[in-house]
Simulated scan of single mutants.
Amino acid sequence: MIEYIKGELTELTPAMATVEAAGVGYGLNITLTTYSACQKYLSHPGSAAKEPVKLYIHEAIREDAHVLYGFYNKKEREMFQLLITVSGVGANTARMVLSGMSVAELCNAISTGNAKLIQAVKGIGKMTAQRIIVDLKDKIVALGIAQEIPAGGSIASPVNNAVRDEAVAALTMLGFAPAPTQKVVVAILQEQPALPVEQVVKLALKQIK
């Protein structure tokens, strides 16, 4: 399994990045988001060497091909890997979705049930958009891909991840499901970001249903 490839970015198009590492040029399928992030790393003949680029990899191994997908950060890769678990969403469709929306925008659409926003992406119909929402709504929270969406509907501001993770872990050990637990914990930290773990856990125990 390839976790990431780090090396010189020698070629770049909106759909493909070529990264040379240890003398091997890897052709990576990318999203428009990763394309934009990678432009500053592109090396040009005769110019000073740029710093190496690091792209996280998803491997798709088929009978007729070994395809690599590259992502600028882990959250985009994780969202891609979730999308391709949805019935009717293949790798190319998932890449199209993540080219049309950022991870935060997609998480917001999923969490608020905004199927129309997802349908705006080319190749995504009504049924597929609804399946994405139903299948992934809890998973994006449980895996920490997005900060939880508060009742008001928009993406919450960042919270103390260390406190959040420790509190969720403690509550999970007590028998509570991760997804609803994280919703409650993040809501608490949004209102009182300086709370220590033990206080967050105590408050969460009163609120988890």
Results as ranks from 00 to 15, higher is better:
Lys50Ser: 12
Ile208Glu: 04
Ser157Ala: 15
Thr31Pro: 06
Ser157Phe: 05
Gln192Thr: 13
Met173Lys: 15
Gly123Asp: 10
Arg77Lys: 15
Val197Glu: 00
Gln81Ile: 03
Lys116Asn: 11
Ile132Gln: 03
Tyr69Arg: 08
Thr181Met: 07
Pro193Lys: 09
Ala146Phe: 01
Thr33Gln: 13
Gly175Phe: 05
Val121Phe: 04
Leu136Pro: 03
Phe80Val: 11
Gly88Val: 12
Glu105Ile: 06
Leu174Asp: 08
Val168Ala: 05
Glu3Ala: 15
Pro193Trp: 08
Leu205Pro: 02
Glu3Tyr: 13
Lys54Thr: 15
Glu3His: 14
Arg62Met: 10
Ala129Pro: 02
His58Val: 08
Val86Trp: 07
Thr34Asn: 07
Glu20Lys: 08
Asp165Tyr: 02
Val163His: 01
Lys122Tyr: 04
Thr31Cys: 09
Gln182His: 00
Ala151Met: 06
Ala194Trp: 00
Val168Cys: 08
Glu51Asn: 14
Arg164Asn: 13
Val103His: 05
Gly90Thr: 10
Ala94Met: 08
Ala60His: 13
Lys54Phe: 02
Asn108Ile: 02
Cys38Thr: 12
Tyr72Lys: 05
Ile84Lys: 11
Lys40Pro: 01
Lys209Val: 10
Ala91Asp: 13
Gln39Ile: 11
Leu98Glu: 07
Leu189Ser: 03
His66Pro: 00
Gln119Val: 04
Leu171Ser: 05
Gln147Cys: 01
Ala194Cys: 02
Ala156His: 02
Ala60Ile: 12
Ile149Asp: 01
Glu63Asp: 15
Arg62Ile: 09
Ile2Tyr: 15
Glu76Pro: 06
Gln192Phe: 02
Ile5Leu: 13
Val163Pro: 02
Thr112Gly: 05
Glu8His: 05
Leu68Asp: 10
Val200Leu: 01
Ser157Cys: 03
Gln39Thr: 12
Ser36Ala: 15
Ile110His: 04
Val185Cys: 03
Ala129Tyr: 04
Ala142Tyr: 02
Ala120Glu: 11
Glu59Pro: 01
Thr31Ile: 10
Met127Cys: 01
Leu68Val: 12
Val186His: 01
Leu174Trp: 04
Lys74Ser: 12
Ile140Ala: 07
Leu189Arg: 02
Tyr41Gly: 09
Ile30Trp: 04
Ala60Trp: 01
Ala177Pro: 00
Lys40Asp: 13
Cys107Val: 13
Glu8Trp: 00
Glu63Cys: 11
Glu191Ala: 14
Asn29Leu: 13
Asn73Cys: 12
Ile2Lys: 08
Ile155Ser: 10
Glu166Met: 04
Gly46Ala: 12
Lys50Tyr: 05
Arg77Gly: 06
Leu174Lys: 09
Val24Tyr: 09
Ala48Lys: 14
Glu59Lys: 06
Glu20Asp: 10
Gln190Ala: 13
His44Lys: 14
Ala129Ser: 15
Val89Ser: 05
Gly100Asn: 11
Pro14Gln: 10
Val200Cys: 01
Asp64Tyr: 06
Tyr56Ser: 07
Val200Ser: 02
Pro180Cys: 10
Val159Leu: 04
Gln81Trp: 00
Glu148Asn: 10
Ile155His: 03
Met1Arg: 12
Val201Leu: 03
